[in-house]
Design a protein around this nucleic acid. Structure first.
Lengths: 337, 337
DNA sequence: GTGAAAGCGCTAACAC
DNA sequence: GTGTTAGCGCTTTCAC
């Protein structure tokens, strides 16, 4: 590899010490204007690029933050990541990306092999079946701050960023009730996850408030994919009593549900109402358009990253829990007309 | 920050030298089994984590590769990135992510501030209006290999990974012709980009082969978004002679076109046929379903990354151009029925 | 305001 | 098979 110029080269050319060059380059005050200008001139002439490994080693801090995500090829995560990236970029941080494929095993392996020593902080959305929270605690204890978002562990004391799952679900179900649906089912996410449970709680609370009976067989847990939504729906349709509305834990599952209904020639809206969660662009493309609960994915990403940077810059920053409002967006799939 | 244990600590405890510890940890041959076992035992006991900054500094190579992308919040790029990540992970490389927001300015700023000294290689999809190829050349010359994919510059000698844009477009248009459409328009991508031009060439070639006249006003260039597709379509509809089919440069534009047709109450398929490019999952969700040309996004990501790693591992690796086949997927939007 | 010197944690000749 | 030594490029006391 052709070597880049180093501060030594600059120092040698200018016949000054490397420490002066270092100071000049970093805008430290106690260096005269002349020397600074000279240094800068030579630096650009030599196309000097700082070696961040050396800086990191000497200073003990890199400007890298790690992101651990279950996946990125869907609307929600790719938008969150875009938000994170935006915030990181504007504060001069780089992003190191890790994807767990929703596998707890891979998550664990990533964490254990994480080159923590070259990361200033970590942004994490845990995988569905993750139980590796002890490992996260260990990382935090060792001085590398973590901020969790969306899928957060329940027992770790650090900042978190989530959407208002309970109220979003509550409003979705109340909306269905107001529109005349009476037998409302819920196809939920992975069992045991905090946000899955919060959405279930919102669903239950809305039913209770309106004096609707709760039927366990109308709550079906599975994964978060379109296929899961499809399968869940067939299960509901083939059950003893057929629901007349389905609240899905996310839009992908809702779309799966719509596909199942279409396959069975059941009118969406008129016969069975559907509400999703996320506001994936697909929800306004599909026919009929899908009523959903919007999450501010981009802002959540940005906020998570800003929070993390605060933790990085200020040791002992007091953890905050940011809850973003979820907003019902009424479209065609939940109207009986 | 609580300091992690270093090889010095291990050496001190075992009363051996740091080099022995270093060798033991890295499985180098010339170290006895006993010492190795002892070292490993102490290492796990101390929860030793290597400092990658130090390693990188000493060895001159990090295990990081940078990815520069116009955006990640759509199907194609998020899938490519997933493929890249998969390959990188399996070969022990980390991914540092940069997003240009499709801005040449930002792309330039990223490249100039790139901490190249801590990157072993770079994977790049240039932004629409990029003209910073000189800078890329400079990076390659300095010893940091680059592989370009999807949107590649025309004048740099290095490996590239693309899909077969020409033939994909050609087949799409021939398919329309075979299905009885005679006035076929093309809503193209950003002018000047290699792959935009290749798709235009494929479109033109199919027309010529079938002795269809070429009408300049039926080729409209703009961006790659759904909104662009919508606007382009209105322009075509309001033109002097209305086309009876539209081949779109990608699915997002095709979907925009479909929305425009729906808004004008024009029957998709029967009155105006539509074909897209990408095979975004949306194409099978929308009604009518969208005929499209599928690109193997995941595989392209994986292949790009593997090619880059070859460049990294083998100085003077001879550049390769990988062209992935594009495959027509016929659905409802291009059938007159 | 500038220089000398030590050190960040690890690797890699070169000895023995 | 193991230790000694120097050094990767940069930062940072501590002098002057």
């Amino acid at each position: 590899m052709n070597h880049y110029a180093t501060i030594k080269d600059i120092a040698r050319i200018l016949k000054i010490s490397t420490s002066t060059v270092s100071r000049a380059l970093r805008d430290t005050y106690d260096v005269s204007k002349e020397t600074k200008e000279k240094v800068l001139a030579v630096a650009t002439e030599l196309n000097y690029k700082p070696n961040y490994n050396a800086t990191a080693l000497a200073r003990g801090s890199t400007y890298n933050i790690g992101i651990i995500l279950p996946m990125i090829n869907n609307y929600y995560f790719s938008t969150v990541l875009t938000g994170i990236q935006q915030a990181a970029y504007s504060k001069g941080f780089n992003i190191v990306l890790f994807i767990t494929n929703n596998s707890a095993e891979r998550e664990l392996s990533i964490i254990q092999n994480l080159f923590i020593t070259s990361l200033d902080g970590l942004l994490v959305c845990i995988s569905s079946d993750s139980d590796s929270c002890g490992h996260f605690q260990e990382i935090i204890d060792s001085g590398c701050p973590i901020v969790f978002f969306d899928r957060v562990p329940s027992n770790i004391k650090t900042s978190t960023v989530i959407q208002d799952d309970f109220n979003g679900a509550f409003e979705a179900v109340e909306h269905l009730i107001r529109n005349g649906y009476t037998r409302i089912a819920h196809i939920a996410g992975s069992q045991g996850m905090v946000f899955t449970e919060r959405r279930v709680q919102g669903y239950l609370a809305a039913l209770e408030k309106n004096n609707f009976p709760i039927r366990k067989e109308w709550i079906v847990y599975s994964g978060f994919s379109q296929e899961d939504g499809e399968a869940d729906t067939y299960r509901l349709l083939d059950g003893e009593e057929r629901p007349d509305a389905i609240f899905a834990a996310n839009d992908r599952k809702a779309i799966g549900a719509m596909l199942a209904l279409k396959a069975r020639n059941i009118q969406i809206g008129r016969e069975i109402g559907i509400v999703g969660f996320t506001n994936d662009p697909m929800s306004s493309i599909i026919t009929p358009t899908l009523t959903t609960v919007a999450e501010p994915a981009f802002e959540m990403g940005r906020e998570s990253c800003e929070l993390l940077i605060k933790h990085i810059k200020k040791k002992n920053f007091i953890p905050e829990e940011k809850v973003f409002p979820a907003k019902l967006i009424v479209r065609e799939s939940s109207i009986k007309k």
